[in-house]
Write a protein that binds this DNA or RNA. Structure first.
Lengths: 331, 331
DNA sequence: GTGAAAGCGCTAACAA
DNA sequence: TTGTTAGCGCTTTCAC
């Protein structure tokens, strides 16, 4: 592999005996060139393997095609969807994506933000693992920012959020449609944004179905499977329940264990619905877990879209993306 | 949020009444400026919030600080580690990382590679989910490339690979050290690079421990849990086995199910070791799975390092990174 | 130690 | 329709 000096516009112009601007116009599909010239230029470019220099173009045109994504989410399976979604949008619009992983998006490695700003990104997408309020670092004060799966504590930036309420409603509905009536919910700690929304939707659906919401059937668990095992075991041994909505898939995992230990068959004795659609959990649990998906890909896409639009015009928007139910075998 | 025009070197120079080159020298720590001038420049830069323009610098200096990472791995939990590792290296060396997710690294969305080349990246890291040989696309012919978790079919590019053999040996050793003697292996399809290496190390360790390698105890399974369930059920019901090395964590998952259905307690009746250390599987299985880690973070780091060095000098290197055993409760 | 000046590759008025 | 000419923000000789 030998690196060789890249072909420039001047090379094309000289070879073709025309001016550099003619080449520029031809390549950028401006109107001011004859069809013939344009074709000659394009042919020559292909022949010589010309490739535009993005940096130079940005410098001269005073505009970037670079955007940034800062997130703590790359280390989870969701990260892939998020990145894919954002990238799909950017690419199909001729933009490139600079990514920085960080453990704390609100206080990202200062260097990573700095680096993006030095590259004069047109805007930054800030995404988090947990749906929550965040405080923007001051270095971001003068850059367009769109928050994904989180929102600005000061209410000054646009964001893209999952429809937790509708998701909770959908989860409950799956249980109701299966004929369950003694329906419980094992929720996340109440200080979590997701917990509030999902519960709200859950209660709503029960009420609409004419099922009285029994406070005793709504319990709290930590987000992890072992904590959920305890909560589920307690709940299921004290109450007669035929359906349970777990506020996330890991809680469902713990619930499966508890059900097994209590001799309850899923879905016969107990129907279970999760939330998140963490593929690796949901599809490997037996029976496969019915759940509600967190639409990271779509949120990434919408975030990117919003960011490029925010660019000019400066309207504050909150976009809410639906959480689709995923039917498997646990209901 | 209002975007405002960035401060340039000329602004600093004018404000300070000195030339632009003086500013440049001062900021880049060149020797040819007086201590005093340098300090004044630095102070002014801080005051005005000057931020160098990476694109302009690259253009003038004919060098980039951008590198690319193309991979199909972002959608798995491993992706996070890989990215983190690569980024750690690049950042601490003042480089930035451009990332492109793709479903097939060998035939990545042509646009994504093109985009990186237009940005004049100094080199590209190509990483795959599966350890395997890959054929480089021709567009990469004149760019430094380092392969991570895969290798060039034509043997012309450097790569960073996990030490599968040593990993297999470590897995077997965990079983041996626990006093197991009837040790089986549920391997991946033999055409997979990982399968060959892991088996090689496995047999090696048994031989060294004076345990005869029983061909009947080495069986093949697909990479997924359901296929593994069948293989494990078959193996365990026909042979007396007290330890099994599963070539990946999902196979271990299926093996857990089979063991339970056959009434075998883990680890009492059957010790199990996996491979990959997929956190979400390994730590939630009960008992938690002892396994061998695929060192993606370290591979990312080494890949980045190799890439920046490959840059000049052009030695073909194959780096092999150790796969550390992770002890949990299944042995 | 400092400044003038020539680019780096490209865009975009403006003239011709 | 084409070419000329300034820059964009920065690095880097080369004189002073």
């Amino acid at each position: 592999m030998e690196t060789r000096k890249p072909v420039t516009m001047s090379d094309l112009a000289r070879d073709l005996g025309i001016s550099r601007s003619a080449v520029s116009f031809a390549l950028n599909n401006e109107s001011q060139v004859s069809r013939e010239t344009r074709e000659r230029v394009i042919a020559k470019a292909a022949e010589l393997g010309y490739r535009p220099n993005a940096g130079a173009r940005a410098l001269a045109g005073q505009k970037t095609d670079l955007f940034g994504l800062v997130t703590d989410i790359v280390s989870t399976p969701f990260g892939g969807d998020l990145i894919a979604g954002a990238q799909e949008w950017f690419w199909s619009h001729g933009k490139s994506l600079l990514i920085a992983g960080t453990s704390t998006p609100e206080r990202p490695d200062a260097r990573s933000i700095e680096m993006m700003l030095e590259h004069r990104v047109g805007g930054i997408l800030l995404a988090t693992t947990w749906n929550r309020a965040i405080e923007l670092p001051s270095s971001l004060a003068h850059v367009p920012v769109v928050l994904v799966h989180c929102f600005d504590a000061r209410g000054e930036r646009p964001s893209v959020l999952p429809d937790e309420v509708e998701g909770g409603r959908a989860a409950a509905q799956m249980l109701i449609d299966a004929g369950r009536r003694r329906i419980a919910m094992i929720n996340l700690p109440p200080d979590m944004v997701a917990a509030r929304g999902r519960r709200h939707g859950f209660e709503d659906a029960l009420t609409n179905a004419g099922i009285e919401a029994d406070r005793d059937l709504i319990v709290t668990s930590g987000p992890e499977a072992d904590s959920a095992y305890l909560a589920a075991h307690d709940l299921l041994s004290r109450h007669e329940v035929d359906g349970v909505f777990c506020a996330n898939d890991r809680i469902a995992m713990g619930t499966y264990d508890a059900a097994r230990d209590l001799g309850l068959a899923i879905p016969r004795d107990l129907a279970v619905v999760g939330f998140d659609n963490q593929e690796i959990i949901a599809s490997y649990l037996r029976p496969a877990l019915s759940t509600v998906a967190l639409p990271f890909r779509e949120m990434g896409r919408r975030g990117a879209e919003l960011l490029t639009r925010t660019h000019d015009g400066d309207h504050l928007e909150q976009i809410v993306v639906p959480c689709p139910p995923i039917v498997r075998d646990s209901v």
